[in-house]
Structure formats: structure tokens, C-alpha cells
Design a protein around this nucleic acid. Structure first.
Lengths: 343, 343
DNA sequence: TAAGTCAACTAAACCGGTTTGTTGATTCGG
DNA sequence: CCGAATCAACAAACCGGTTTAGTTGACTTA
């Protein structure tokens, strides 16, 4: 009477075959005739049977899930539009193949190792995404030893056995610099993220190189932390400096919006006296005043590609190579304009 | 030679006892003498053994994980600072007890049912959070039939067998209205979220009631969608209306920031000609110009409480009752001020 | 016609834990 | 000093799948 869910044995009994045959039929392996296969499948259908993931996990030693560990201050995590969209992309690739995503948010890097270890020890996931790469990132070495597949988001600066799924943010920065240089700007500053992060480094480096390419002196740099508070502080620092820039390239939209507000608060006209650009293409960037010139990236697509790549690694059939995502798009909006003439 | 991870049998052998005893010792059940228990635990320690979660799941019929399904347009998901912080809070309660969070993001409500069903069918999770409650939410009924524990974020408008973990957003709105009324505003508008969402309804209703309490006529309402684009459109609609408001209460910070920009674009001074308030207390709200008066909520704490409650339901020892979170905090900043005198 | 091949299928072992009788050794009450 | 109760510990069954090693019978093949 107790309405327990049907098991493979129930299906086998109903179809008049052995458990093994049901398993074979279900997994599309041969050694079972077409007639029997159909009989089994319809028996399964009538009973409404789906194989128990738990039993499967135990016997196949597969979790059928992948994981992601985020080491972020929870208070700041919300400000970054990247992850939700990335995760949505990941899901879009996982759901069709019956995989799931396990998310871990830990307060800081100290807990990060522990989190990866636990995921591996408990066998909760078959692979992980390595995001927010840092310089000389110790996670690469850790994960190389753990029995987990992995893909990195962008290429690490250390030797890595894992495929990298890369979005070229340097190209985006170069586009921004060129467009500003074309407008006559000569003092183009950059507000970066923390230097420990590779993407912060990359963007900074791209900015420096692009300036050199445009025959401009590297304008002053302010290192910030990707938060609004940090963006504002960096902006004030730059504007109070000895030779204030006529344009600022921020490493993300959030800092740019804070910077924009900060300039306005001081009565500095944007873009008349100061041009401002963001990075990322958040929804809000189009709806601030003036609307933000920025570079649109595609975290959803990134998530999709990263997930497919990770599943490929887990499957282990063919080696997975690095994947380059389509280039980011420059969107010119009202926050940039010609350099002030009296400069 | 193959360095497979140790199993319970290895531990048993090493400690010179049976598998059963190891299991008993590990789970702190009695029937094991103190001496043996110690011998077993140290054997486990030496071998570096941790019980296989997969095996455990199979034999205990527990997933040791909880789930959350988000039905959102991925492009807009990123704009909402609520979820990342909420999730971080959830993790902070799950990690210490060895539980994990499974996240599902589905593009729309059509896929939502399917997602919950899959979680249940596959036995991936023991319970779920029900967020983004809608009017007459069909998920309550679905989940009541599924073999899953659940907690809702706020109380549904339909009968629900699940405990609700509630943050009183109505009180926050009331504070905002009162503070604006005190400043002499008489035409206080509201830009709401979609009416299908209970939290949008609640905030709207709280706004209406607070206006009545302040002896004010219900100012015009604009129904939006919690996005920046929607916030801007709603703002324009209100400002173009027959009797434009002198203050607008937005249902979230994002719309408020877009509205603020929209007003500025039209040359309307904030707060001189128009007061603006947000809701949520995002980091950015403090760094726009003028800084946004808003109401600070605590998604992290909400996640923590919701997770503990859910674990309580799953354990099933004592019945879990509704939980009320501490009230939200009003933060008065520069985006609100006295009503324009010439109005 | 005996031996060999092959496809179709079964029985049983296995994954690594938990749980349920059952057994021996101790302790206890009378 | 004996039968009953108590307790530590064990062996075996179980969770629900997958996988391997056989078994069977039909069909070739020499």
C-alpha cells in the first residue's frame, strides 16, 4: 500500500526480464533485442519509473553534478551582475543532460580550499569551474591533485592541466582606449580591480598597451576593488591628482557608475569635462544619466560554453582544448565625448 | 596499488571490528564501548576516511542537499542583488552541517514545475526554498504533493503547509511614506513591480495604506517590472501624467536609480523638485548622486534563517513555525528632501 | 552431425554505507 | 549459584542501480 516509488526490480518483473536487462535497455547498450527493449521501456513508462540517481551515483561513481566555489564577501557579491547570468548559462547547458549545479559561497579565500576539498571528498560533484582567477592561483595545483575535472574561466598565469574558456577582455579595453583617443583624449586613466585578480591585471595591461599604441603616455592608474565605494574613492583620487584625466576607463560598470556620480557631485560635467566608460554591459549602464559607454560581455554564453567544456572533460572521451568566446562589443553612449578643448 | 579512497570496510578491518560497529561509532549511536569507539575513530583518522556521501544517500534516502529554483530571465537576474546575498546566507547555515545547495535557474515559469519535479524525482535534494512568491502560487500545491520539504520566503496568499520565513517589507514602505509626508509631500507616487508577485503587491498595498494613514490621496501608481528599463519608463509615465508627483517610492533600488537618472535627464532636480526613494539597500544606492534614500534589508540573514528553518523541517523533529526577521532599516540620504514649495 | 559462434538474456557480485536480528559474555536479582 | 536481563559486537540483509561472468538455444560451419 505504501506508495513507494518503483525500482528497477519492479520494472524487470513487469517486463518479465532481469534487472540487468532493464539496465541495459535503459542505457541503450546492445545485447537486448528490439522487441524486449520496447517491452521494457513501456513497462517503465507504465510504472512511471525513473532510475534512482542515488543508486546510480553509487554504482557509477559519478555525481552527475558540477560545482562552483565563490570566495566573495557576501555583501559585495550582490553587486556583481556577472555570476547570476553566468550561472544561468551554465544551467542551460546542464539541464538538458540531467546534470545539476552545486554552488558554494564562502566568505574568503581561506575557506576556499576547504570547500573544494569537501566537494571532492564527499564526491558531490564530478567537476568544478574555476572563476576569479588570481595571480599564481594556488587552486590550480590543488585541483590538479583532487580527483575532480575542471575548467578555468580564462587562462591562468601558471601551468594548468585544465582547459580554459576565455573571453577576451583585453580587446574590449583596447576598443575603449582607441575610441577615446580618437576623440582627442590624451590623459586617459584607468580604475582597475585588485591586482591579485588576473582579469583586473589583464584589463590594466590592455589599457597600458593600448595607450602606447596610441602614442599616449600611460595616464594615472587607480587600483580599486570592483565595488561602488572603491570606484568612487578611486575617482576622487584621480580627480584630485596633479594632472586630472579627461577620460576614465573603469574595469567594471559598477565602479563607473559610482565614478560618474562622484564626478557629478563635484560639478564636473560628463562627458563635457570628463568622459567615462564602464565594462560589462550591465542593464543599468544604459539607464544612468548620461548613459554609460561600455563594453558588452556575454556571461550567459560564457556559462554555456564553460559548462559544455566541463562536461566534455568529465566524459573524458576526446581531449578538450581551450575555447575562445566571441569578442566583446563596444557600445558608445552618452558618457563619452570629445576631449575638453581647453585641456 | 591503485590509491582508491578508503571505505568503511578498511576502517573496520584496521580497527578489528565489523562494518556495523564503525557505522555505529561514527554516528554516535550507543552499543559501542568507549574503548572501541576510540579505536575506530583513530583508525578512521589514520586512514583519512570520510564516509561516502553517495553510499549514505542511497541507504538513508537522504540527499543531504537542498535546492532552489529561480525562474528569471537570465539577462535580468544579474541586476538583482538579492539572490547572491541570500545564497551566501544560505550557505553559511548549510556548510557547517555538511549540506549543500543545488541551484536551478530556468528561463521562465513554464520550466519551473519541471525543475521542481526533477529535483524530487531524482532525489537530488531533501527540501527547497520557494522564493518570488506569486499570487495564488501554484508551486505551493505542487510541492505539497512532492516528497520534498520546503519553506517559503514570506507568507503565500494561499493555504500553505510550509513554514514561512518573513521579512516585513510593508514596514519599510510605511517608514518611507511617513518620512516623505513629514517633509510635506502630498503627491507620493509608487513604482511597483509586476502585480503577480506578492512582494510587489505587498509593497504597493503598504504604500496605499500608509498614504491613507497620512491622510493623503493615493498618488498615481506605475506598475513596472523591477528592471532599470522598466523603472525609467514608469518614471517618465508618472512625470508626464496630469499631476506629476513630488516624490516617488520605487519598489527596488535598481528602478529608483534608473528613475533618478531619468529625472536628471529631464532637468528635474533631485531632491529639490522630486524626491526619490529606493528599496533594498544595495551597495550602489549609497554611491549615486544624490545618494539614495532607501530601506536596508538583510538578504544574507534571510538566507541564514531560511536555511535553518528548512533543515529543521527536513529533520522533522519539532514542528517549525513561521519566522519573522528583524525589521528593515530606513536610511535617509540626499535623494529625499522637503516638498517643493511652489507645488 | 559434432563442434563452434553468436545474440539474448540471467544470476550474482558489486558500489559503500545503514539497519536488523542474533550471539556470547557480563552483570544482576533472588 | 542459577536464570534473566543487559550489553558489546557481528553477520547478513538492504538501499537501487551497474557490470561481469555465465548460460541457453538457435544458427553456422566443416
Amino acid at each position: 500500500m505504501a506508495n513507494r516509488r518503483p525500482t528497477i526490480s519492479d520494472v524487470a518483473r513487469r517486463a518479465g526480464v532481469s534487472k540487468g536487462s532493464v539496465s541495459f535497455a535503459l542505457n541503450g547498450r546492445d545485447g537486448v533485442s528490439e522487441a524486449t527493449r520496447e517491452r521494457i521501456l513501456s513497462a517503465a513508462g507504465e510504472l512511471g519509473w525513473t532510475p534512482s540517481l542515488r543508486a546510480r551515483s553509487l554504482s557509477t561513481s559519478r555525481a552527475h553534478a558540477v560545482g562552483m566555489v565563490l570566495a566573495r564577501d557576501p555583501a559585495l557579491l550582490g553587486a556583481d551582475p556577472f555570476f547570476p547570468a553566468f550561472i544561468a548559462g551554465v544551467e542551460s547547458a546542464l539541464a538538458p543532460v540531467g546534470q545539476a549545479l552545486l554552488l558554494q559561497v564562502v566568505p574568503d579565500q581561506a575557506d576556499e580550499f576547504e570547500a573544494y576539498r569537501r566537494l571532492a571528498d564527499q564526491g558531490r560533484v564530478d567537476g568544478v569551474f574555476i572563476a576569479d582567477l588570481r595571480a599564481n592561483d594556488p587552486r590550480i595545483e590543488l585541483l590538479a591533485e583532487l580527483p575532480l575535472a575542471a575548467v578555468t574561466l580564462n587562462r591562468p598565469d601558471v601551468d594548468s592541466p585544465f582547459p580554459a574558456v576565455c573571453e577576451d577582455d583585453r580587446a574590449g579595453i583596447a576598443l575603449l582606449v582607441r575610441s577615446l583617443a580618437d576623440e582627442g583624449h590624451t590623459r586617459i586613466s584607468h580604475v582597475s580591480g585588485p591586482m591579485e585578480y588576473l582579469h583586473a591585471r589583464n584589463r590594466r595591461q590592455a589599457w597600458e598597451e593600448a595607450l602606447i599604441n596610441a602614442d599616449l603616455a600611460p595616464g594615472p592608474l587607480a587600483v580599486a576593488d570592483f565595488t561602488a565605494a572603491g570606484g568612487r574613492k578611486a575617482t576622487e583620487q584621480l580627480l584630485d591628482g596633479p594632472s586630472p584625466p579627461t577620460a576614465i576607463i573603469y574595469a567594471n560598470d559598477l565602479m563607473a557608475i559610482a565614478g560618474l556620480s562622484s564626478a557629478q557631485q563635484r560639478g564636473i560635467g560628463v562627458p563635457d569635462q570628463l568622459s567615462i566608460t564602464g565594462f560589462g554591459g550591465s542593464e543599468l549602464s544604459a539607464h544612468v544619466h548620461p548613459a554609460l559607454t561600455t563594453v558588452i560581455s556575454d556571461p550567459f554564453g560564457w556559462g554555456q560554453s564553460a559548462a559544455s567544456a566541463l562536461l566534455g572533460v568529465i566524459d573524458g572521451n576526446q581531449p578538450v582544448t581551450d575555447i575562445a568566446l566571441p569578442p566583446v562589443q563596444l557600445v558608445l553612449r552618452a558618457s563619452t565625448g570629445p576631449a575638453p578643448s581647453g585641456a
